[in-house]
Every structure is written in C-alpha cells, then in structure tokens.
C-alpha cells in the first residue's frame, strides 16, 4: 500500500518541478491540474475500508482541482488574450534548482520529525513540504496573475497532502469545508483578475506598483 502511495506522491513532487521549469502558462496550469487529480486519488489508497464519504471527497477533489479550477484559469487565459510566455522574476533554472534543493531539504526535515509507526516510510510529509515550498516559489517568482494563482493552488495541494495524515481521525466535514473555501477563493481571485485585466489592460502584476511607501 505504502509503495503505491509513495509512487503517486513522488509523481506529485515531480510535477512541482515541472511547474517551476515550464515557461508557458498552459503547461503550468496542466501541471497544477494533474497534481490536483493525483491528490484526489490518494485518499482512496490510504483508506483501508470502503467509505462513502471518502469516495465523495475523492470525486469532489478530482472534479474541483482537476477540472473546474483549471477550466476557469484557461478561460481567463483566453478571455484576457495575454501572451502565454511567463515573465519570471526568478529565472527558470534557479527556480528549478531551488525547487530541487527544497525537495531534498524536505526529505531531510521530515526525517527529523517523529512520525507515527504506521506512517514511517511514507513520503506524505516530505512531499507536502516540498509542494508547499514549490508553490511559494511560483507565487513569488512569477509576475503573471494566472501563474501566481497556479502557485497558490500548488501551495494548497501541499497542505492538502499533509491533511491526508489526519484522514483517519478527523471528520471529513472539515476537508469538505476546506475544498469549498478553496473553490470560492479561486472564484473570487478570478473575478478580481478579470477586473484587473479590464482596468490595467494586462494581467502582469508587476504593473501593480502604485501602492507603496
């Protein structure tokens, strides 16, 4: 069980690096969507017995993270008619190196933290830390609003992965609430992006520089 789980987590970690290295917006959106779908499968692998709630959450996660949100982002991309190249504030190779370094660091850090006996070989914690860091890098290192949203999604994916450690003990109600909040958040972000696009005629957030000391 752990080995197939780790395989999927490893894939998700690889997708972080893919998102960091890609220079075009559609491929970053695709990486985030694929990662979201992988996360949707994970609860089914962890849960030993069949439970309706787990199935519902898994389907909900795959639908929202894998299809709904990426669809919204692609639509924003088309509507804004923006140039699909990314404008990195941190260049691709350095961000890839940082991402790889963070992955190694996450494994080392997770080695220090004490795990429960049944979860000791699991990659959940290092995977989660590496994904959170990758999301941060994308959030800070790119100037297009859509790529920042992808960074935020990957960050949330990392946190979701950590949440799976608790899946047996906490009510799934909380997870549903979290998923709902995330969806609403992306909706709100989408609306604001739309307005920024209309107001500034661009989705390049490096143009948002009026407010400062």
């Amino acid at each position: 069980m752990t080995s197939s789980l780790n395989l999927f987590i490893g894939l998700a970690m690889g997708l972080n690096l893919l998102a960091l290295a890609s220079s075009r917006l559609p491929s970053v959106i695709r990486a985030a969507a694929l990662q979201g779908m992988i996360l949707g499968i994970l609860p089914l692998l962890i849960e030993r017995e069949f439970q309706w709630m787990v199935i519902v959450v898994a389907i909900g996660t795959i639908a929202v993270k894998g299809f709904v949100i990426p669809h919204l982002l692609r639509r924003a991309l088309r509507a804004a008619n923006i140039d699909r190249e990314m404008r990195p504030l941190i260049a691709f190779v350095p961000s890839l190196l940082l991402g790889a370094g963070a992955t190694i660091g996450a494994v080392a850090l997770a080695g220090v933290l004490p795990m429960r006996p049944e979860q000791t070989g699991s990659l959940l914690v290092p995977g989660s830390f590496a994904t959170v860091f990758g999301g941060f890098l994308l959030l800070m290192g790119r100037s297009k609003a859509i790529s920042q949203v992808c960074g935020y999604l990957i960050l949330e994916n990392g946190i979701y992965m950590f949440g799976l450690l608790l899946i047996n003990s906490t009510p799934l109600l909380v997870e549903t609430g979290i998923l709902l909040d995330l969806t609403v958040a992306v909706f709100v972000i989408g609306i604001i992006m739309d307005r920024i696009q209309k107001e500034f005629d661009s989705l390049d957030t490096s143009k948002l520089t009026t407010l400062r000391e």
Binding site: L139, A145, Q148, Y152, G163, I189, I192, I196, L211
Partner: peptide
C-alpha cells in the same frame, strides 16, 4: 488602486490563511 489593494490582500492574506491551515 482598489483592485491592486484587493489583489495584494488576496495573495498575502490567502497565503497566511494557507499557512494557518498547515
């Protein structure tokens, strides 16, 4: 200016709230 403020609020506030979830 208001949209710029909203965007910064969403990114900084959203990241903060994500960290509190972690």
């Amino acid at each position: 200016r208001a949209f710029e403020a909203s965007w910064k609020y969403l990114l900084v506030g959203g990241t903060g709230i994500a960290l509190s979830l972690l």
